[in-house]
Amino acid sequence: MSAIVVENISKSFGKTKALDNISFNVKRGELFGLIGPDGAGKTTLFRLLTTLYTPDSGRASVDGFDIVNQYRSIRERVGYMPGQFSLYQDLTVEENLNFFAALFDSNLKNSYDLIAPIYRQIEPFKNRKAGKLSGGMKQKLALSCALIHHPSILFLDEPTTGVDAVSRNEFWDMLSDLKNRGITILVSTPYMDEASRCNRIALCNEGRIMRIDTPDNIVATFDSALYAIKADNMYQLLLSARNQPGITNCYPFGETHHLVVDNNFDIDSFKTAHADIKGFDIMPMRPTIEDMFIKLMRQ
């Protein structure tokens, strides 16, 4: 049985279609990522699955329970970490944990084993008010609170937004640990580089899912050749590269521009055309999730 089943779900707010006929399954014990930019409908989907919203059409179940009719059972067994820090800022770390544990008829001691790897890092600050924690610590506290009642499914809405690169890495390590303990995790992120840490990902944009597969398979379906180009004047390079024959797309990508080409592309004539541009260089590139995402968005 799948942990999460979503079938043809749609949800609109006024004229805005936040989710447009979405379907996917998350297997038990899977770390499933929703990858997409802001406004893709990720948060709406989380709110639907955590029973805060009801869908306009379609149906969905979480841990075998229908999100509309059996929402009470779902609330007993899911952990939710909203995108915005939503614990009580004027309660201490320990008070927040005890409070949320008590709401589920549990206590900190019962859940200590599960949350220990995460909680131990903030335990020295347990008497500090949650509002006074740093961003990374807040995130660890929020994850601890979401885990306090031994949920079978975790919903994490952009947990790494606004967190530094080191903490983000640590956070994904924690998620892998939790996954190994058998907890199903649905996580969303706007960072494409985090996608490779998931078992499977769904690329979403504007309320639709463009593709669902493992990160490797998604990259493997990128069927064009890809180059990275750079020069001293990057903007000039971008303009001139786009005018060359055989170019499907050229876009800024970190320190370089990525160049997606078709069969008409001839690397030698491209090099000749840019020979007089200062610092020009071109090298073949392995496609990333982001390249795939940009490609899918253009279709």
Binding site: T50, T51, L52, R72, R75, E76, V78, Y80, P82, Q84, F85, S86, L87, Y88, Q89, F100, L103, F104, C145
Partner: peptide, 13 residues
């Protein structure tokens, strides 16, 4: 306004 109600709403309270 603080969003804390969202966390409460997903509990069985």
């Amino acid at each position: 306004e603080n969003g804390t109600i969202e966390q409460i709403n997903v509990t069985p309270i």
